[in-house]
């Protein structure tokens, strides 16, 4: 009798508890990101998991995948089940929508600041003591200067690099397109190695000791300095650079299928919170939240930044003119 009752009691208890059990679920998200954000998202994922646990009681583990921005977007198009993507430029996310219809057309309007919770820019990293005396973009086209940058065909960062140099040349030459083309042509003639992603280039410059100057994401340059010693490298801030806006969004079809929309949404929104912004700033991304930006003001050099929409008419246009097959970049190598 006693045992019977006890089993019944247990069954009832389990029945009552089961909704509770299913509430404290283990959720996993996949964040497909570009090359230099590895350290940023390792830290952010831990912070978000804590935040989400405190808020809902659920355990979130965020899996990461990194690579060149184009390569990563290609993966998502082919079915890599990313809940969220955090890529180097909006064109790559546009392509996810265009090629695979996984995101709506207006994805960039869903979050503040063009869906870019942090920004960055392009700077020049040189070896200690700046032996080649590099001060600005025009020093990169001088004969005998060896320049390291990844391949704009595959790397998002490299496309920002290219556009920053191009914008500088436009400004120097009163917006003369032909002269700007000649300028980037000369610049790429000085490039001995074109890696497929930003990280590969950092390795080439830093570990393999190749090149006099490395055109780099600002955050990547800071990180290289921190990881490998400030006694080895110096950051040179050019007179003009580009405002790089690495955007984030969720992949609607995936989150709806996996029923992770709420947590994916929260994951992206939390990037804009104070803690998210602090983590971004600590990893050398420029925060967009005013008071966090103020706090880290000293960390980031003041640079005259142009916007891609103003100078190049947006990513779609820039991609078509400069980076598509048969575009300006291809012409550089076909002489």
């Amino acid at each position: 009798m006693y045992t019977k009752f006890s089993i019944k009691k247990w069954l009832v208890a389990i029945a009552l508890a089961s909704p509770l059990l299913s509430l404290a679920a283990d959720i996993s998200l996949l964040n497909v990101s570009y090359d230099p954000t590895r350290e940023l998202y390792v830290e952010y994922n831990a912070a978000f998991a804590k935040h989400w646990k405190a808020k809902t009681g659920d355990n979130v583990t965020v899996k990461q995948s990194h690579g060149g921005s184009g390569k990563q977007a290609r993966g998502v198009i082919d079915g890599l089940p990313a809940d969220v993507v955090t890529l180097a430029l909006s064109y790559d996310i546009d392509e996810i929508g265009a090629k695979a219809k996984l995101t709506p057309k207006d994805w960039q309007k869903r979050l503040p600041h063009n869906s870019s919770p942090y920004t960055s820019t392009i700077v020049l990293l040189v070896r200690k003591g700046n032996p080649k005396g590099i001060k600005d973009w025009n020093d990169l086209v001088k004969p005998g200067v060896s320049v390291i940058t990844p391949n704009p065909k595959t790397s998002g960062g490299a496309r920002w690099n290219y556009l920053a140099a191009y914008a500088y040349a436009l400004k120097q030459n009163n917006n003369d397109d032909a002269k700007a083309r000649a300028f980037v042509g000369k610049l790429f003639k000085n490039v001995p190695v074109l890696d497929s992603g930003a990280r590969g280039s950092t390795t080439t410059f830093v570990e393999r000791g190749i090149g006099d100057v490395f055109i780099s994401w600002e955050n990547e340059a800071f990180l290289a300095q921190k990881e490998l010693g400030p006694d080895k490298f110096e950051i040179v801030v050019p007179s003009l650079s580009i405002l790089a806006e690495p955007p984030v969004t969720m992949i609607d079809k995936v989150v709806d299928k996996r029923k992770t929309r709420a947590v994916a949404q929260a994951y992206l929104e939390y990037l804009y919170s104070e803690e998210g912004q602090e983590i971004a700033a600590k990893n050398y991304y420029r925060p967009t939240l005013d008071f966090v930006a103020k706090k880290y003001e000293k960390q980031f050099p003041a640079i005259n930044l142009i916007k891609i929409d103003d100078v190049f008419g947006g990513w779609q246009k820039a991609q078509k003119i400069h980076f598509a097959d048969g575009g300006v970049f291809d012409a550089i190598y076909q002489k």
Binding site: L30, D35, K63, Q64, S65, G197, T203
Partner: peptide, 23 residues
């Protein structure tokens, strides 16, 4: 797809670590 802890094989991990300053 290079998802860490899920779809990385050893040779792929070699490449990833190589690209993370963890020579």
């Amino acid at each position: 797809g290079h998802i860490r802890g899920m779809t990385n094989t050893m040779p792929l991990l070699v490449e990833i670590l190589y690209n993370e300053y963890q020579y």
